[in-house]
Amino acid sequence: MTHSPELSTARWRSSSYSNSNGGECVEISDDFPGLIPVRDSKNPTGPALIVRAAAWGPFISSVK
Protein backbone atom coordinates (compact mmCIF):
# COMPACT_ATOMS: atom_id res chain seq x y z
CA MET A 1 0.00 0.00 0.00
CA THR A 2 1.34 3.44 -0.95
CA HIS A 3 1.08 6.23 1.59
CA SER A 4 0.43 9.83 0.62
CA PRO A 5 3.23 12.25 1.44
CA GLU A 6 2.84 14.76 4.28
CA LEU A 7 2.10 18.00 2.41
CA SER A 8 2.06 20.46 5.32
CA THR A 9 5.65 21.55 4.62
CA ALA A 10 5.38 21.51 0.83
CA ARG A 11 6.55 24.56 -1.08
CA TRP A 12 3.92 25.26 -3.70
CA ARG A 13 4.36 27.15 -6.96
CA SER A 14 1.73 28.47 -9.33
CA SER A 15 1.54 28.06 -13.04
CA SER A 16 3.47 30.61 -15.07
CA TYR A 17 0.11 31.39 -16.68
CA SER A 18 -1.55 32.41 -13.43
CA ASN A 19 -2.19 36.04 -12.62
CA SER A 20 -3.34 38.17 -9.71
CA ASN A 21 -6.97 38.27 -10.94
CA GLY A 22 -7.85 35.10 -9.04
CA GLY A 23 -8.38 33.03 -12.15
CA GLU A 24 -8.58 29.28 -12.21
CA CYS A 25 -5.12 27.95 -11.52
CA VAL A 26 -3.32 24.99 -10.04
CA GLU A 27 -0.23 24.84 -7.87
CA ILE A 28 2.31 22.05 -7.76
CA SER A 29 5.13 21.10 -5.43
CA ASP A 30 8.55 19.81 -6.50
CA ASP A 31 9.45 18.63 -2.99
CA PHE A 32 8.62 14.94 -3.44
CA PRO A 33 10.86 12.89 -5.74
CA GLY A 34 8.78 10.75 -8.06
CA LEU A 35 5.51 12.48 -7.15
CA ILE A 36 3.80 15.72 -8.18
CA PRO A 37 1.24 17.03 -5.68
CA VAL A 38 -1.33 19.29 -7.38
CA ARG A 39 -3.87 21.55 -5.67
CA ASP A 40 -6.36 24.30 -6.49
CA SER A 41 -4.73 27.68 -5.87
CA LYS A 42 -8.08 29.10 -4.69
CA ASN A 43 -8.38 26.39 -2.03
CA PRO A 44 -4.89 25.85 -0.57
CA THR A 45 -6.19 23.99 2.47
CA GLY A 46 -8.31 21.66 0.34
CA PRO A 47 -7.33 18.26 -1.00
CA ALA A 48 -4.36 17.67 -3.27
CA LEU A 49 -4.10 15.22 -6.12
CA ILE A 50 -0.88 13.17 -6.08
CA VAL A 51 0.38 12.28 -9.56
CA ARG A 52 3.36 10.05 -10.31
CA ALA A 53 6.11 12.11 -11.93
CA ALA A 54 6.26 9.67 -14.86
CA ALA A 55 2.63 10.51 -15.68
CA TRP A 56 2.98 14.28 -15.21
CA GLY A 57 4.89 14.97 -18.46
CA PRO A 58 2.41 13.11 -20.69
CA PHE A 59 -0.49 14.81 -18.88
CA ILE A 60 0.96 18.30 -19.45
CA SER A 61 1.68 17.48 -23.09
CA SER A 62 -1.90 16.38 -23.63
CA VAL A 63 -3.45 19.54 -22.16
CA LYS A 64 -1.28 21.98 -24.12
Rank of each mutant, 00 (worst) to 15 (best):
S41K: 11
I60N: 13
A48R: 00
S8T: 14
V26L: 15
P44Q: 12
G57V: 10
V63W: 06
L35V: 01
E6G: 12
I50Y: 06
L7N: 08
T9Q: 15
Y17W: 12
M1P: 06
D31A: 04
E6Q: 13
V51E: 03
S20Y: 08
P33M: 00
A54W: 12
S61K: 14
F32W: 14
P5E: 04
S8H: 12
G57S: 14
S15R: 13
N21A: 11
T45C: 07
N43W: 03
T9H: 13
S62R: 13
F59G: 06
S61H: 11
H3D: 12
P47Y: 08
E27P: 04
D30L: 10
G23K: 15
C25A: 13
Y17Q: 10
G22H: 05
I50C: 09
A54P: 06
G34Y: 07
V63P: 09
A54V: 14
N19T: 09
S15A: 13
K64C: 09
S61R: 15
K42P: 02
S4P: 06
S62M: 15
V38E: 01
W12K: 12
D30P: 09
G46V: 03
N21E: 15
E6L: 13
R39F: 01
T9E: 14
S41D: 02
G22M: 13
A54G: 09
E6W: 11
I28K: 14
F59W: 15
L35R: 04
G34H: 06
R11N: 09
V51K: 05
P5V: 00
K42T: 00
C25V: 14
S8K: 12
E27D: 09
A55C: 14
F59A: 15
F32T: 02
S16H: 09
G57P: 08
D40G: 07
S61V: 05
H3K: 15
D40P: 02
L49V: 13
W56L: 11
I50E: 04
I50N: 09
V63N: 01
N19V: 02
P37H: 02
T2R: 13
D40V: 00
H3G: 02
Y17A: 11
